[in-house]
Design a protein around this nucleic acid. Structure first.
Lengths: 165, 165
DNA sequence: CACAATTAAGTTGTGCACAACTAAATGGCG
DNA sequence: CGCCATTTAGTTGTGCACAACTTAATTGTG
């Protein structure tokens, strides 16, 4: 369908806005889940889910982190991470132990098995990248757009329905 | 961090691939969830979750559909849709009834209340678009990239770990 | 018509995301 | 020191995504 053009400050009919919105949120949602599906297949060998893989990536890079820091890297809170880390620990890939210096903090680090898994994970990015059909430059470009989008969305001051300005 | 360049067919160190991959999957995941957060706030007024809103968008556009068709529009199966539709029905927004012509099929259509909700939903896209900080052209462009990505990911023949080509 | 294969919806179980809450430890401040 | 606000994990409850399965209706084929 050819995209209609609304030059300048011209407003779009409400029905079209709803259709446009549909396109955008559908496509983002669909892309995200399509990605998830590909990761699921690729990560099956490693016995990891996609979010677990993300956690392991951070741990491979940083070695050991408190749950809090892990959550900052991943934008996840303890409500998501606690059970996930428990499963990773049950799988023998990480160890969790209370920090002696600050008993509130729990430090997470990969076990030997967890570190060893990295060897088998190095091929994952290549396979994923291949599945996208995008070249490196396109992926980098898309990444930067998505990061810009995320920053904007996080910082967005949502206008009220019927405002107190 | 300045992006390193690897011209031609030159291979990238495995560690860098893992880092790059982190960037891409992190950014997609983060963008998707950031979007979800904004929708959550905006849709709170309407009493809808984000996936419920997507369902209502399809129903507003098509009026009445069997669960199967709904799933094709949304790339969702009955395992996701059945409970979601049950909640929408409990909220009085849709009705579900077995098709007389084909007793396997359940047709879903918005109730009067469901149709009426559309009036209050028309402002949603504008608020979301505003929160992204992107203009219409940028959003359209991003959408087309994401659709291309989804198509590629869906059709991807994932190379085996150690393949029988 | 009988019967196997297919199709549609729903159910069950696992895992993730997130809000709201609890519990315990820490850090200030009077 | 005593006490309270803050910080860090964890828990609980709801909802979504998806795989695997069940049930029932339909279709195709001999």
């Amino acid at each position: 369908m050819a995209p209609k053009r609304y030059p300048g400050g011209m407003t779009m009919p409400a029905a079209d806005w709803l259709r446009l919105d549909q396109q955008i949120c559908f496509s983002l949602n669909a892309a995200s889940r399509a990605f998830g599906g590909v990761y699921r297949v690729v990560l099956k060998d490693l016995g990891l889910t996609y979010p677990q893989y993300l956690v392991m990536l951070v741990l491979w890079e940083h070695g050991e982190l408190p749950v809090k820091k892990l959550g900052e890297h991943l934008r996840l809170d303890s409500g998501t991470l606690s059970p996930l880390l428990k499963r990773l620990e049950a799988a023998g890939l990480v160890r969790r132990e209370r920090s002696a210096r600050d008993e509130r903090s729990v430090r997470v680090r990969p076990t030997g098995e967890g570190v060893a898994l990295r060897e088998r994970a190095v091929e994952v990015p290549r396979r994923i990248a291949a599945a996208t059909g995008f070249d490196l430059a396109e992926l980098q470009d898309l990444r930067s757009r998505l990061e810009r989008l995320t920053t904007a969305l996080d910082g967005a001051e949502l206008p009220e329905t019927a405002g107190r300005g």
